[in-house]
Computed example of a mutant assay.
Amino acid sequence: MTPFFAEFIGTMILITLGAGVCAGVTLNKSLAQNSGWIVIGLGWGLAVAFAVYAVGGISGAHLNPAVTLALAFQGTFPWAEVPGYIIAQLLGAMVGATLVYLHYLPHWKATDDPGAKLGVFATGPAIDHPFSNVLSEMIGTFIFVLAMQAMGANAFTEGLNPLIVGFLVVSIGLSLGGTTGYAINPARDFGPRLAHFLLPIAGKGSSNWKYAWVPIVGPLLGGSFGGLFYSAVFKGVLTTAFWVVLVLIVVVLVIALQAGRKRTVNAAGKSVA
């Protein structure tokens, strides 16, 4: 198996189990319906762990464009392989989402809420606030990459590393996930969101493309900065890329802040009219 195909398979497993737990908790007539956020957090953590177990020895189990970019910026992963990894991750995420759609086939029609259906596939904000939403995704992915790098410097009993990474995802989900649903992975959100758009899901409603940039840009910048921050602080290797990504983060946050203010002004004008 090639590393690219391993990334495809690993991401497919990740999304099948991760989106699957979301479907089980939210769709009507599921035996797991309403079992709660802790179940979702644990489900996603185990999904990451088992996906890493499946392909970690073949591709390194990035399963996430933010991780791939972070490693490339650190110089530990070749830039030439970045596009192939990201494409494989996106395709794997789409296939995983399609498997969840097929697995829960009769439940889509039994569920009236289109937002619940979209929530199986993609993330969304608890409060629609562009600045806070993209900042949340940046922070969550920054912590994910930084902690994952730090864990790599510790010696665990052989075979436990993927499980530790899974626990990290559970921790992020429980502590930081309540704001945006903690995508912390552009492939995890964009691939299933695209599948939601394309699949014939009964009463599915909008795929909310206006929000889709947040779980792409936030994790890419937050994850990249996490890797560069680890290199600078833990290893003493400070590169130009550190400052470039930091500037990009500031620029994106300023744009998001202005967009939020413009939206508020427009909404106020409509309410007055």
Rank of each mutant, 00 (worst) to 15 (best):
D189A: 07
F142R: 06
G124V: 02
L146I: 07
T179K: 12
T111E: 05
G119R: 05
Y182I: 13
T123K: 02
N185Y: 12
V134Y: 01
E137F: 02
Y182L: 15
G181W: 00
G124Q: 10
D112S: 13
F144V: 08
A116W: 13
P186E: 05
F131N: 04
A150K: 10
D113H: 10
T141Y: 09
N154K: 10
V120Y: 09
V145D: 10
A150E: 11
M138H: 06
T157M: 14
L160A: 13
N161G: 12
Q149I: 04
I127N: 02
L174C: 10
A122F: 13
F167W: 12
P125I: 05
V134W: 03
T141P: 11
P162H: 00
F190W: 14
T180H: 04
R188P: 05
F121S: 12
L118D: 02
A126E: 10
P125V: 05
T111A: 03
T111L: 08
S132Q: 02
G159F: 12
G181V: 06
K109P: 04
F144A: 09
R188L: 00
P114L: 13
V169P: 01
V134P: 04
N161Y: 15
S171A: 15
V169M: 13
I143C: 13
V170F: 09
L176I: 09
F190S: 05
S136Q: 09
N154D: 11
I139V: 15
S175W: 08
V170S: 01
N185G: 09
P125F: 02
G152T: 08
S136A: 15
N185F: 15
V145R: 07
G124L: 07
N185S: 11
I139Q: 06
W108L: 03
K117V: 13
T180S: 03
